[in-house]
Design a protein around this nucleic acid. Structure first.
Lengths: 198, 198
DNA sequence: TAGAATCCGGACCCTGGGTCCGATTCAACG
DNA sequence: CGTTGAATCGGACCCAGGGTCCGGATTCTA
């Protein structure tokens, strides 16, 4: 459990240095796969021991970076104005949430990729996924005439998987706004009640 | 390019042995991560050199297994009776295709997981994904009043990602039939034309 | 059956995550 | 301000596992 904060000056300074170095490296490198721990340590001017004591393991470092980047979004979602905040009608909030996820992954492609796919463990066990999923599920449940909220939440989130976003943005060269529009349209369609308005 | 067939008796026998051994191992083990190449070789009664010469690398072995398993499904899709075959109206064929994918991944959980996630390369570069996607895209394009076929095809396929299926089946204990029903319902909703009937 | 081409297989290499422990730095205390 | 014990530093080290190599065995061809 390397979570406890150290009060020592050099410890916190090194932690910051590692975070910054890792951030820079992941942004610079093409694939997150080939940024090595030793490299991060070297770039931060730190030994590997320090790095591993501070973050536990590779996944821990990734998580730390990810959480830090995600913090503003989380704030906006939990206690923010519409259309992200809690005071939004469900039918409008769901697309807003997914749009936020998409934008986040577009802005942090490499990082999201590294965290979601790089790990040997399933991304569905990560607790940040669990958070998104249960929130989305809860909002979906407030939409009348819609069942299977659990599955729909999974399926919609799957449309924003990091490697898919990376593929669309990087390989197929789909512009950001177009992608957002497509996702929004898709989400909206998925929310239509089983029976069409007649 | 280790694709060329060898006419030597022992070579083909060893190839079969490796395939069978790998199949058994992946089925038996909990996570595909911890079935090692050396292990496969040993289980097949073969040296590592033989294994790698026959399949190139780990991904090659996985691909070979996958393609073999997928063959019947491919047949059914390309030249089979409805609802999978080409002679099916698009609106019915799309759910059928995705149901087939889902069933396949349910029946070959470990293997699909190993191939889609285990590799260091993005699953979207795999040519079997490309096949599914372009087929689905083509069928979607025949549905009037539906745009963004490319994205929709990606999004729908994302709902059948191996690790999601594994999570639902293994972790959340969702029964097979329930999952199929949920996916079918989701797909159907996603196919509604953009504007509701009014 | 000789000869050559091919294949076999396990010893070997190398990368990269993770650990260890002596040296070093920090902070509390006298 | 010097001492002292504890926490930290950091790079040498370990190990697993994917992938390579080549001497020797096996199989096809003449």
């Amino acid at each position: 459990m390397p979570e406890r904060q150290s009060s020592r000056k050099d410890a916190v300074r090194n932690r910051e240095a590692v975070l910054a170095a890792a951030d820079a490296l992941f942004a610079r490198r093409e694939s997150p796969e080939d940024v090595t721990m030793a490299e991060v340590a070297a770039a931060a001017g730190v030994g590997k021991g320090t790095l591993f004591r501070a973050f536990g393991d590779r996944a821990g470092l990734l998580r730390a970076l990810y959480e830090a980047r995600l913090e503003p979004v989380r704030q906006a979602v939990e206690t923010g104005p519409p259309p992200l905040g809690p005071a939004t009608p469900p039918r409008d909030r769901v697309p807003a949430l997914l749009d936020a996820v998409l934008c986040f992954k577009l802005d942090n492609r490499r990082l999201a990729l590294a965290l979601e796919e790089g790990g040997s463990r399933s991304p569905y066990r990560a607790e940040h996924y669990e958070r998104w999923h249960s929130l989305l599920r809860a909002v979906l449940e407030q939409i009348p005439g819609l069942s299977d909220s659990d599955f729909i939440a999974h399926a919609l989130l799957a449309a924003t998987r990091a490697d898919l976003v990376e593929h669309l943005a990087g390989e197929e060269r789909v512009p950001r706004e177009r992608m957002r529009a497509q996702l929004a349209s898709f989400v909206t369609r998925a929310l239509t009640s089983g029976h069409r308005k007649s």
